[in-house]
Design a protein around this nucleic acid. Structure first.
Lengths: 230, 230
DNA sequence: ATTATACAAGAACATCTGTGCGGTGTCAAG
DNA sequence: CTTGACACCGCACAGATGTTCTTGTATAAT
């Protein structure tokens, strides 16, 4: 899309003005900022910009204009206009790099967790995450922590744990483990030592556990813990 | 902070209107939406709201008002107003779903953290987060936790804490607090009791602290804790 | 009772601000 | 050359919008 230098300047100014003041500029604001002496010229160009779907405008309303980000996106102009502290993304605008992770339920000591990849459909809630932080999102699922049962892993009531579905774990990894003899699932660092499993809490003020390997089954590896407080 | 029902309604309407139109309402818009027949009454209440630092206003400018999120945050009203009613419109796309949060450095007992909004430029690292989980990203910053000094807050070495920059806190909120007498910053639940401040760890197996209010300065409110394990 | 303060209303006023219309200059097509 | 589309300018007007002034009500303090 061809675009006059003047219109570019106008767009840039509008973006800057809104960023600065939290309300849109008036026609005369734009005029003086872009060296346009006549209000009608500003209006003329604003109309053009609106026709090109680069801005939106409410007629007869003071400062009733806003940038049309969808259109700007298509025109490839969004990046130039997005303010410094503002958001940013791919550039072409179509490739948003986030994905959704199913929140499958709750994890609490004393209750088993059943996790199948197919359970994705039964998820009552989804968490939106960012690709920069996580890999292979297909295998991820999330659980809400209920009660203080995981406090030895420095995981509090209400926290969300994100796990990667797998049944084996490397030594030292933090896993969600089902302990047969105690009938509970817990988050611990996993160490296989001979035919014994050592489970070490993340919080060193709690003791380690030693169990027969047969009594421990890994339900997934803990990838992340997220705590929302507000 | 006490707030008239009418003023609450006004704030709610302003938030809704801006969300909807991308520009602020006029005095008469507010009036008719809040059943106020006189423009002067609207102005009167707007002035009060401005005095309470809940909105900002540019005099003599049409629709020259905006919500003061910093003040609203401190008043504990931000949550009610943020993205409340108006549906998240995909077409308009006024906001991308991403934003970046600066990682300003480390937090560790014994070291002060200096946080200025201008420090955004000096950030060596940025965290990409998703808007569905956080509000008002402008005021957010992140710190990496160093050492086990925060373990009583169930925050481990290497965790990332996300804070909202503010110097006052409501009782019960988790804050980053600088403790003068001990020369350290710590994460605790904050309670102001008379001229004493009570700091309660998130982890109940650690004791509470009682300090003179003068010795405690809030550096920000903890919004989130993120732990990456792989 | 009296005063002070917060809140509300209505109307008149002063700007702010968008719109409309006549006019100018350029440039390419007919 | 003429025409017409395009970009631009000034200006006057009208509607939109913030401000001010006067008045009234209620409540609490003196």
């Amino acid at each position: 899309m061809k675009l006059t230098e003047r219109r570019k300047k106008m767009l840039a100014f509008i973006a800057e003005f809104v960023e600065e003041n939290n309300y849109p500029p008036s026609i005369r604001d734009i005029g003086s900022a872009c060296d346009i002496s006549s209000t009608s010229v500003v209006k003329y160009n604003l109309t053009k910009l609106e026709q090109d779907r680069l801005i939106k405008r409410d007629k007869e309303v003071s400062r009733g204009l806003s940038l049309d980000w969808a259109g700007l996106q298509e025109a490839g102009l969004a990046d130039d206009l997005a303010g410094a502290p503002a958001s940013h993304q791919g550039g072409d605008g179509s490739a948003f790099s986030f994905f959704q992770v199913p929140v499958l339920g709750y994890i609490a000591a004393g209750e088993p967790i059943q996790v199948e990849t197919t359970d994705h459909f039964t998820a009552d809630e989804w968490l939106e995450l960012n690709e920069t932080l996580y890999r292979n999102p297909d295998q991820l699922y999330a659980l809400r922590v209920q009660g203080d049962s995981m406090i030895d892993a420095s995981v509090l009531d209400g926290d969300i744990v994100i796990l990667r579905h797998q049944e084996r774990a490397e030594n030292g990894e933090m896993v969600a483990a089902w302990i047969d003899t105690q009938n509970e699932t817990t988050l611990k660092h996993f160490f296989l030592e001979g035919d014994q499993v050592r489970l070490r809490p993340a919080n060193p003020s709690y003791p380690e556990m030693f169990l027969p390997a047969a009594d421990v089954s890994v339900k997934g590896k803990v990838v992340s813990v997220i705590r929302q407080l507000e």
